[in-house]
Nucleic acid binder design. Structure first.
Lengths: 224, 224
DNA sequence: AGCTGTGAATATGTTCACAGCG
DNA sequence: CGCTGTGAACATATTCACAGCT
């Protein structure tokens, strides 16, 4: 009987997603079992890290043998809360919203955008696939009516806070926020920020440091 | 005199981007100085964290007064390597590529997509803004010819590794990777992964914990 | 006095190394 | 034996608390 072990860190959770993805690949390759070492190699971490991450949730492996690919996959889906369909509201029918609506990997994980909202009257009434774009004034009724708990926010910075508050009022508990602003919401609301400019800036910083043209000098790396 | 104190962590670098963004807001509001406490509040961290982060790169504040908004902004841009134009190659002219091409915050930071590549002959020859889409077979000459060191990769998973290797061969040193796969590249190449499904999965995990379905109430049996 | 800059203390995350089970 | 699961050792990151400028 699996008692509660220790509290998994955010990085652990993110790695679970990577393990899940790797297991799907292994299953497609026909592998029945996998060792922590191979799984680690596939996601770019260490065998000890894999075992420690999994140990927060139970013991899924067999000593001397490794992990069974399909059962572990099922278990990780379960842990990540992917054993169900998640209806999602998309607020902001711009370029990024459109790209995310079409993003195939969401549907494969049970995330289904069931409502699209925008403030632009020219967009309202358009259909993307089978989903009609509604005006943002209908946020409350559409979100609450469909029992939507997850939102993707791709509106400009200026409107983000206001929309986020309306989402929370309508029952949303988790927001994937693409607006480059710090949302101020009650602490029980989960917010995950994706800041695309910041990602390029982190690269810019690293490249900027490495002016030396010799491909020798680096900054702390573990020899294998 | 930029004396380097200790090695800044990756999280420190990411917060520098947030500080920079917050300073732009403060400048627009007409603020001349800012305390570590206010800056912290704007980006959702603590005053001590702000001071520690900045201290890795020098002393930019005045005791008793705080930091001057505009000079600190300039200093952060400098540290992040944003005091120049960064030509960028975009590989993958799909939905996400298109959204990123239009993304206004890249240009504002000096990132300019100067080359777009795709393998689809129907896309080659189209123009996005002033940039023509070229066939991926021209990768080497276009990337090397323009001295491009940064790439954004938005191709499907299957092609990502091959394209990434070609980019590195052509002189690219940093890759913003949207393909859901672990790229295997020389250690001196900086790779920053953006995994959109993973971001939703992290939310799914958190929401799932707070209100687990009765069926899979398998862990955390002890409490709350 | 006010607020930064920073060593010291604490908290958190990762790696080691080995006991223990298949 | 081989490979997991895990406490202990280690490494890193954050927070505290206060000395030291302005």
């Amino acid at each position: 009987m699996p008692r509660r072990r220790s509290k998994p860190s955010d990085s652990t959770i993110r790695r679970l997603s990577l393990y899940l993805r790797a297991l799907e690949g292994l299953e497609a390759e026909g592998e029945a079992t996998v060792s922590s070492e191979l799984l680690a190699e596939r996601v770019g971490t260490t065998a000890a890290q894999v075992r420690k991450d999994l140990s927060h949730f139970g013991s899924f492996g067999k000593r001397g043998l490794g992990y069974q690919v399909t059962p572990l996959q099922a278990r990780l889906q379960d842990i990540l809360g992917l054993g169900r369909r998640w209806p999602v509201v998309l607020v902001g029918a711009g370029r990024i919203g459109s790209a995310l609506f079409e993003y195939p990997h969401f549907g494969a994980r049970g995330f289904e955008i069931v409502t699209i909202l925008d403030r632009d009257p020219n967009k309202v009434g358009q259909r993307w696939g089978g989903v009609e774009i509604s005006h943002i004034s209908e946020l409350e009724s559409l979100v609450r009516g469909a029992g939507v708990e997850l939102a993707i926010l791709t509106v400009p910075r200026e409107g983000a806070q206001e929309v986020a508050e309306a989402l929370v009022t309508a029952g949303v508990r988790g927001i994937l926020n693409f607006a480059p602003t710090q949302l101020r919401l009650p602490p029980e609301i989960e917010v995950n920020d994706v800041n695309l400019a910041l990602e390029l800036e982190a690269l810019s910083f690293a490249l900027h440091l490495d002016r030396p043209r010799a491909e020798d000098a680096d900054f702390g790396s573990g020899g294998v």
